[in-house]
Amino acid sequence: MPSRIRAVVTVLASLLSAAPAAAERLSWPARDPPAHPQRVVSLNLCADELVLRLADRDQIAAVTYLARDPRGSTVAAEASSIPWTRGLSEEIVALKPDLVIAGAFTTRTTVGMLRRVGFPVLELGVPTDFDGVRAQIRTVASALGQPDRGDAMVADFDARLSAAMPSSPTHLRTLVMRPNAFTVAPGSLGNAILQAAGLVNVAAEIGQDRLGQVPLEAAALADADLIVLDAAQPGSPSLADALLRHPVLAALARQGRTVSIPNRLWTCPGPQIADVVARLSQAARVRVAR
């Protein structure tokens, strides 16, 4: 066995053997976190956002590196002074958390290992409507021992959402075009956001591929009243964003038929989605007035 591979195997073996001992030493029963955990680690951006908004600072052992990036995070300022990880097993074990909060589709290897050795893990799903958002906020708040903060966040979200929703829906035919031509499907939280803003999602009628992408030709022929794009990030071009700078979409923008929304506002199912509803409602009013 090559020396490099042998070294990696040795490190992993030592971590896996040490983790059960650490768990036993601190009396961590599997899936049974303390009522008020004191060493919380979050393993994806959406968990980061809720933890940073709901927990006491001294409860948080670490968030992910993504929480500090203002391009995708709504809590970059709050995360600036918090330790971060890349979600690797050895990083999390070393922190000796008494609660780990993860997403359903991220860091699966790490989550699986943590469960096997007995660390308490709360996995967050992907809400498909506003009730799901409210339930997830309350679930995280309860797990952190901060249920009152969860109730307060939900109340604030509901107030902002009520203020953002139009009194008279415009029913403008709307298409969301994200990087790499991803759109929002019927039955998703993105679709619920469009409906709350008084808009009609045309993704269902024009069709998507199995990955949820819409070809540019289909988007152009859909003749949508409003196309929702990710706001451009100055100085950070990418192939994924190239489609959003296509001349077809540029022409629609000149006609006042596009609106740009910062990606960070609807990457995660948190209270900030009320801001998305507000921006879309305003864009619809402007479009109707043209």
Rank of each mutant, 00 (worst) to 15 (best):
R4W: 06
E49K: 06
L244P: 00
A164T: 00
D32A: 15
R108S: 13
V40K: 09
T128E: 08
L189V: 13
A278P: 00
A163Q: 09
V214S: 01
P120N: 15
V202E: 02
Q272L: 09
A47N: 06
V286A: 13
A55T: 11
P237Q: 14
L211V: 04
E217I: 08
R134S: 12
L239P: 01
A196N: 04
L194A: 03
A218W: 01
I82W: 02
T109K: 12
F119T: 06
P37F: 14
E24N: 13
V93F: 07
R71W: 11
G118N: 06
E217F: 03
G150A: 04
A61K: 09
G118F: 05
A152P: 03
G118M: 07
H171F: 13
S238D: 06
P70E: 13
T74S: 11
L229N: 02
P169S: 13
A278V: 01
V51N: 10
M113R: 04
R25G: 05
T107M: 12
F130I: 05
N44F: 02
L15G: 06
L16N: 05
Q59K: 12
T10L: 13
D241V: 10
G235K: 04
S260L: 02
A197C: 08
A21K: 05
I82N: 03
R210N: 13
Q195P: 00
T10W: 08
G207F: 09
T106V: 10
M113C: 04
P166Y: 01
Q282V: 06
L16Y: 10
N263F: 13
L199I: 06
V40G: 11
N201G: 12
L239D: 14
L249C: 13
P20M: 14
R6K: 11
A219Q: 01
Q208T: 12
L161S: 02
L199M: 08
R173V: 12
V154C: 08
V121G: 07
V8R: 10
S281E: 00
V200P: 00
V140C: 11
T128L: 08
N180Q: 13
V202D: 00
P34I: 15
A94I: 07
G187T: 09
R178K: 14
L54M: 11
S73P: 05
Q38M: 10
P271Y: 04
L249G: 10
F119C: 08
V154E: 10
A7G: 08
L172G: 01
G198N: 08
A222C: 09
I60V: 15
A164G: 00
V176H: 03
D129G: 08
M177E: 00
V126C: 07
A102H: 07
A67P: 01
L199D: 01
A77H: 10
D131C: 04
Q136R: 14
E24S: 12
D98C: 12
N44I: 01
I206L: 09
A242R: 11
G132E: 07
L124T: 04
T267E: 09
P179A: 15
R31M: 10
P147H: 03
S81H: 11
S260I: 00
V121N: 04
I137T: 09
L43M: 14
E91G: 11
R149L: 14
Q59I: 12
R254G: 14
L189D: 15
E91Y: 07
L280C: 08
V276Y: 00
G235V: 06
D98K: 11
G198W: 01
A155G: 09
A62W: 04
S260W: 02
